[in-house]
């Protein structure tokens, strides 16, 4: 094995690292922002309200991410109205005129970057809804009871008691989701994006050096994975501080109970 190939081309990997981190970070953030309110709605007892959310979660958790990405990236172009707007249904429409393209198509859905981001966001949103829903449903009833007994309204109870308590409980599972999404982002290379895996693809194609190219990519991913795991452990330690065994600093031994 000849790793000088890699050291000469390391900039490809660092450019790729940026794309990977962007894709993962933005989709996780957007997914979480949408997932919290949807998870709250999902716990409602109104069937008409929960049905669409159930369906969304069921479909996105039941199909592979790569297929979701293909449907969005390759699939949407099948429909003329996505490309040219609803004018296509009118008579005398000429699709050869490029100026007719819709704003959404021109700047978003014809771009691989946006399509990957869109697919990842929907996917992580579905998984996150399920994680948060589980946490909300496992809120100890005593907490809810206590909130009611001091006369909190439903929204105040949600804001002050249920959400802080359940988001804290959802945290470890969310850590797994973050790593899952990081690994899922490698699929972006399949639709031509130059993330870390894409960079490895270039090196492999140029030098026919699969070991060097993909082992380097693997090392990059391992480093990010370990960093995330370390970070989540640190945050967990902080947000679970009230559950940690009591340490008497003057005696430097853990007090029992």
């Amino acid at each position: 094995m000849d790793f000088s190939i890699i050291s000469e081309n390391l900039h490809y990997y660092f450019d790729g690292l940026l794309i990977t981190v962007q894709l993962t970070g933005i989709s996780l953030l957007l997914g979480l922002i949408f997932a919290i309110p949807l998870a709250v709605l999902r716990t409602s007892r109104n069937f008409i309200l929960t049905m669409p959310i159930r369906f969304f979660v069921y479909v996105f958790r039941g199909t592979p991410l790569i297929v979701q990405m293909f449907i969005i990236y390759y699939g949407l172009g099948q429909f003329d109205f996505v490309k040219f707007g609803f004018g296509v249904f009118q008579e005398g429409f000429n699709p050869d005129n490029i100026g007719n393209q819709t704003f959404l198509w021109k700047y978003f859905f014809s771009e691989a970057y946006f399509c990957a981001l869109f697919a990842f966001t929907l996917n992580t949103c579905a998984y996150t809804i399920e994680i948060i829903r589980g946490a909300i449903e496992s809120t100890p009833f005593g907490e809810v009871e206590a909130a009611k007994s001091v006369g909190m309204s439903r929204t105040m109870m949600l804001r002050r008691i249920i959400l802080p308590s359940s988001l804290r409980r959802a945290f470890p599972a969310y850590g797994n989701e973050v790593i899952f999404m990081l690994h899922g982002s490698a699929l972006a290379s399949v639709i031509t994006l130059m993330d870390i895996t894409g960079a490895a693809g270039i090196i492999n194609a140029r030098y026919y050096a699969p070991y060097e190219a993909y082992i380097t990519a693997g090392v990059f991913y391992l480093c990010i994975t370990f960093t995330i795991v370390w970070l989540f452990k640190k945050i967990e330690k902080r947000i679970y501080a009230h559950l940690a065994p009591y340490v008497d600093k003057t005696q430097k031994t853990a007090a029992v109970n």
């Binding site: 690994h183 870390i196 895996t197 993909y214």
Partner: peptide
């Protein structure tokens, strides 16, 4: 540890191309 820290796709490409070689 290593397998669970690397994306499936990267491992697949590594084993497929590398294994072939």
């Amino acid at each position: 540890t290593i397998i669970r820290g690397i994306p499936d796709l990267v491992l697949m490409l590594l084993i497929f191309y590398g294994g072939q070689m």
